[in-house]
Design a protein around this nucleic acid. Structure first.
Length: 221
DNA sequence: AACCAGGAGACAT
DNA sequence: ATGTCTCATGGT
């Protein structure tokens, strides 16, 4: 028999077998998902949690409150998440658009491509942040590409790793196009990639693939 | 104590 | 179209 094909779908099964269900995104509301998507840009999630906690504590975890808040005050609230000055502007851009556009009730009516283009047009919302929002806040079938995805699948030999964002997104979405329910699948898949990456031993990059075998010393962090 | 973290934009080449 | 720099806090 031929060796088991190491394709995108089988990597998912192995990740899920190794780490279990993730049930992302870690947030109370869909708006909170959007805030977290901006705050976590190139930042550890533990820092984002603090920033979101500060926003909640100041009763500023709503689009209206963030729009009304002076940038300098917003920056101080989100300080623990790093890049607080730029992220304050990015959050305000996002919230201003969100409010003007009628929030979820109105935006839900847009098709995925239109919604994506509107998000990408905002200063501070790049392809990954836009796709985080599309998938985890609007439940659209979009596969999120992040640095972990590039690293993992690059090391597995399934991609080069330096492809353009859109090219990789199409690659994964096409590879999973036969699946019955893309939204829960994409949701879980990206979460598993991150979970795997967080527990990965930095000193041994070769361990990147150890979830593929039944015994892995790096499992469970 | 350097190094990195669930990126994106501005700018030069 | 492809590099390089900046933004900044909190963990290992």
């Amino acid at each position: 028999m031929k060796d088991a094909a190491l394709d995108v779908a089988s990597v998912y099964r192995r990740l899920k077998a190794a780490y279990g269900a993730q049930a992302w995104w870690p947030a109370e509301t869909e708006f909170e998902v959007m805030v977290g998507a901006v705050l976590t840009q190139n930042t550890a999630w533990t820092n984002v949690e603090r920033a979101i906690g500060q926003l909640r504590g100041a009763s500023c975890l709503t689009p209206g409150a963030i729009v009304a808040l002076p940038s300098a005050e917003l920056a101080q609230l989100i300080r623990p998440s790093g890049y607080f000055n730029v992220k304050a502007e990015r959050l305000k851009n996002l919230c201003r658009w969100y409010v003007e556009r009628g929030e979820h009730a109105a935006l839900e009516k847009l098709c995925t491509e239109d919604l994506r283009q509107e998000l990408l047009a905002l200063k501070g919302i790049g392809p990954e942040t836009a796709d985080d929002i599309l998938l985890y806040a609007f439940h659209r079938p979009v596969f999120v590409i992040d640095a972990y995805t590039r690293r993992l699948f690059g090391r597995l030999g399934l991609i080069a790793g330096d492809e353009h964002y859109e090219e990789l997104r199409r690659f994964f979405e096409e590879a999973l196009s036969r699946e019955a329910e893309p939204v829960p699948l994409f949701n879980e898949y990206h979460a598993l990639i991150v979970e795997h990456a967080k527990g990965l031993c930095r000193k041994r990059p070769e361990c990147e693939a150890c979830f593929l075998s039944s015994r892995c010393s790096a499992e469970g962090k």
